[in-house]
Design a protein around this nucleic acid. Sequence first.
DNA 1: AGGAGGTTTAGGCGCTCGCCCAAATCAGGG
DNA 2: CCCTGATTTGGGCGAGCGCCTAAACCTCCT
Lengths: 224, 224
Amino acid sequence: MRPEETRAKILDATDHLFGGLGFDATTTRDIAERSGVNKALIHYHFGSKDELLSALLDGYYDRLSATLIEALQRSAEPERQAGDVIDAYADFLARNRTFCSVVQREVASGRHVEAIVARTLPFFRLGSTWLREIAPHAPPELELTQVLTSVYGMVVTWFTYGRVIERLTGEDPFSPEALEARRRHVRHVVALLFREIHGGATPKERGKTWQRSTRRTPRKKSGS
Amino acid sequence: MRPEETRAKILDATDHLFGGLGFDATTTRDIAERSGVNKALIHYHFGSKDELLSALLDGYYDRLSATLIEALQRSAEPERQAGDVIDAYADFLARNRTFCSVVQREVASGRHVEAIVARTLPFFRLGSTWLREIAPHAPPELELTQVLTSVYGMVVTWFTYGRVIERLTGEDPFSPEALEARRRHVRHVVALLFREIHGGATPKERGKTWQRSTRRTPRKKSGS
DNA sequence: AGGAGGTTTAGGCGCTCGCCCAAATCAGGG
DNA sequence: CCCTGATTTGGGCGAGCGCCTAAACCTCCT
């Protein structure tokens, strides 16, 4: 068997097991058994269990990058670009369900944050410059980081909490219909935001946002 | 030392370690050392490592329940109720940062989903009846599950990805100012949704939501 | 004072983990 | 053909895991 073939089989099994059980609960013996490969080969080809995770993440982010860039270039109109990217991202997560699990868990564990940050940074920069171009003067409550986090969270949560949503609602959140419904909802919310950010909200509408009842909102505004 | 005191010390250490390292990467010896008790006491008081996690979750959800119910009862007006609950939830997560980590990781691992679901169900039911009361005829793209998932996701993502956001933006996402900014953003988005759901959106506005460019939207509408 | 039951202790059992090693196997060039 | 280097194999080492046991220890009650 060619070495690349062995690597691919190991990575496939790793994807499945890390996604299902998690990094810690998966043993290299599990991976070896599932990929039909001797357990020493994992260390021969990848060095260590940590480096195996890195290789897995690289694969994910390379494919994600290609997918999102393709979606972004499909159109030149910002509104449509946003919709296309959201759809592409949701589709990608639906097709790579373990991706979410792996990332979410490693972020929560705090141990592989640097590995995630290094690979997320390009996407964040891309999103930032894109947003700043189409909305140079967004109001503070629609700041760049806030909007990016919200859109990211709305998309990702559906997949991370898929199994929980399934048990809560009694319906399959990963069926084509459910996925389309989710995409439509997120696009709808983003459309609302977009209208405020890009088209510029009417100031009177913007002013009467909820004021919290029991706490004063600090006036301090951080520089830059 | 009184038994309850021992239990409390064990739970404190468990909270810190499960939140920081995760369930798998934390050993009962770690917990014993950090809480200053003999390692056999953990099994004496809690039975097993899994039951220790359950006890920890029970503590979280009991306190969360009290917090949210108090926030909900602070007012009778739906808009203000929503804002209060969001603020209370965000505050709770800020004060119990490990809660997010533990839940998120266990959900992602898929092994303790039932434990989470059982404790989440009451909140979901409460949110459902509340939403159905104030918005009996929400349009499909603002369906109950969709809205709940989005609001939940927007709040939780900030804390789950806190360390990532910190590295991406260079600012502390858990500072009082940053937390208030986040709360204000989420309340703002929810206000937009609320206006559409509750006040009833103008149909023409609702109609011109983005249509995705490359995919037809299935017409099928699931019953009930 | 002395017994009883709840709590704490040191020690360790049986097992699995990531990783390593020396030998076997394979493929291709001289 | 055989030599060479890359790849694969079975076996196992040392460490650490969750959990258990038997004895010691406390704290009341009678």
